[in-house]
Nucleic acid binder design. Structure first.
Lengths: 334, 334
DNA sequence: GTGAAAGCGCTAACAA
DNA sequence: TTGTTAGCGCTTTCAC
């Protein structure tokens, strides 16, 4: 593998001129440029990025901390992030943290080790020591699941409003007992969604019943378990609101196994609008999130941070949409 | 941010000793080691990985080329790869190529640019110029969708045998007209699976009917379209074998919309065994693949290649399993 | 516009 | 066991 010296020798110029031709060609005479380019070609030269980065103190890498890659929602976020990163000449260092703080911290440290220029965290945990003063915090953006009152820029959804909208929708359909299957207890997402759920009930003059809330962890299985608890109640809910589509699909399986029909016997709603939501039977009423946009926005903001450009708004809120499909319908009269 | 010289000064030793303490502590006296470690602590020193890598000509990065991150099967593969990489002290540079060869080539070149030590390609395309002699090919492993007769080490499934097993299963259930919804035309996977399908038919003395084969692209929608074509036939198949679960779930939706039942009116089979396969209605009969193992194995082999260790077997074949659920049943007598 | 030369932070060969 | 020292390949002054 050839190096810059080899190219310089071939072109009959100095290494500095080769470097300039590659980084800022406009500062080199066209004829010199051509000779250098010819030499680059001839030597099939590729700059050693390690050396470039080492010297210029920029890695072009962005760390992205993902709680669960296998979750289709996050897969879409990553996909959006990757596109934006690539467009901006950055690469994505992927880390499946499984929600473990030690792993998150370890990967975030890659920034300190000059292995990455910034961090995107998709979970509500600050991987940097709280003792670090805000001023010399490395570039980091917190997206999707956002730390309430955190010190980093965020990109989030108004989860309170989204959960409220869905609950209102179910109430408008005549439902009075609405079960809620929550996500992981550690996630502020679920706190916000619970608030939205409560707000809608209150607004409609309905009493909040703690028995109608059960805890899950965003997996298919959690939805199944949650639904089986709900269905076992003597006065069971007529509608079930799951905090993500995976759990809703898990719940659907359980409901069917009990010989009940959706939506005739019980209405069902999800959250996220994963591709599968439109393909299950019946198609799922859910909250659509712009997953790719989370990734794109996060990368854009992070790069601004890295370039020390001013950020127009530190807390971006992306829009949601209530997507009505067949899984939620008017409550049957008894 | 402090550097090695600062630490050396603090510890009253040379930079070489600091470097040694960090890389091979056993070559340093315990008491020296302690002094160095104390100095490291005091200076809150973190080695500049860019410099380390630049100097030692190892990046610790592995590029992984993924056709579609949003596909749950690949998400599982990535997850396995990431775990193995992390365990071995490597990081994963993720690239969502969308199956585009130019993007694949571009990212594979990161190896030439000393930005990564090796490449994992999950698609049947060689991102390196065929002109490169095998001897000085960068470390690369080809997994999942494998180039037939390619020059790189591979980790694959016996797709011929798997498709044959599934087709045999459907035949054993009494089906004589079995529709096949294929994946992307460019993929050798689909060629192998077609072979297996044909082999099973032949073995059972059934004629191969080209009208029963239709082309898809592994997406939910392709399954829907494929099924609608099959169902429109005058002499429609009594079983449908889809080359992945996503397409099977798409087909399921179409079948139901036509007012038909699975498996009473038509049997359905998929491939991959994604988590959702067990949660659709009815649960999907499918071929289970060890997705995470693909990622793990790929990383392990790649690291052997990087370390120039001999590879026990260049072409690993991972086992599949025929998972019988309710979507495929005995053909109803007419 | 171009070249000479210093040096980024570290590792490794060699010497002591 | 430890220190000295020469670079790794490149960018970036600073002269010319």
């Amino acid at each position: 593998m050839s190096n810059i010296r080899e190219v310089a020798r071939l072109a009959g110029v100095s290494v500095a001129t080769v470097s300039r031709t590659l980084r800022s060609p406009e500062r080199v005479l066209p004829e010199t440029r051509e000779r250098v380019n010819a030499a680059v070609e001839q030597a099939s030269y590729r700059p050693n990025l390690m050396a470039v980065q080492f010297r210029s103190r920029k890695t072009g890498n962005l760390v992205i901390l993902v709680p669960a890659i296998a979750n289709t929602f996050f897969a879409r976020v990553i996909s959006g992030a990757q596109k934006a990163a690539q467009a901006a000449g950055y690469r994505l260092l992927l880390c499946d943290t499984q929600g473990r703080e030690d792993i998150e911290r370890q990967f975030a440290e890659l920034v300190y080790a000059h292995q990455a220029d910034g961090v995107i965290q998709l979970r509500a945990y600050d991987p940097f020591d709280a003792a670090v003063p805000d001023a010399d915090l490395p570039p980091i953006v917190n997206a999707c699941e956002v730390i309430n009152g955190g010190r980093h820029p965020t990109i989030s959804l108004d989860n309170v409003a989204a959960a409220k909208a869905m609950t209102e929708h179910l109430i408008a359909l005549g439902h009075r007992r609405i079960g809620l299957i929550k996500g992981s207890a550690s996630s502020p997402l679920t706190r916000d969604r619970l608030s939205g759920y409560k707000a809608a009930l209150e607004q409609a003059g309905l009493r909040f019943d703690n028995d109608l809330v059960c805890h899950g962890d965003f997996t298919l299985n959690a939805g199944f378990i949650g639904a089986s608890k709900m269905l076992a109640m003597t006065d069971r809910p007529t509608a079930l609101f799951c905090e993500n589509d995976e759990m809703a699909i898990g719940a659907l399986k359980c409901i069917r196994e009990r010989g009940l029909r959706v939506p005739e016997d019980i209405s069902l709603a999800g959250f996220d609008d994963i591709p599968m939501a439109d393909y299950c039977d019946p198609p799922l009423t859910t909250i659509s999130q712009p997953a790719e946009a989370f990734g794109e926005k996060a990368v854009e903001m992070l790069i601004m941070l890295i370039d020390k450009k001013p950020i127009p708004e530190r807390h971006v809120v992306l829009p949601f949409e209530l997507t009505r499909r067949k899984s939620a319908a008017r409550r049957a009269l008894e």
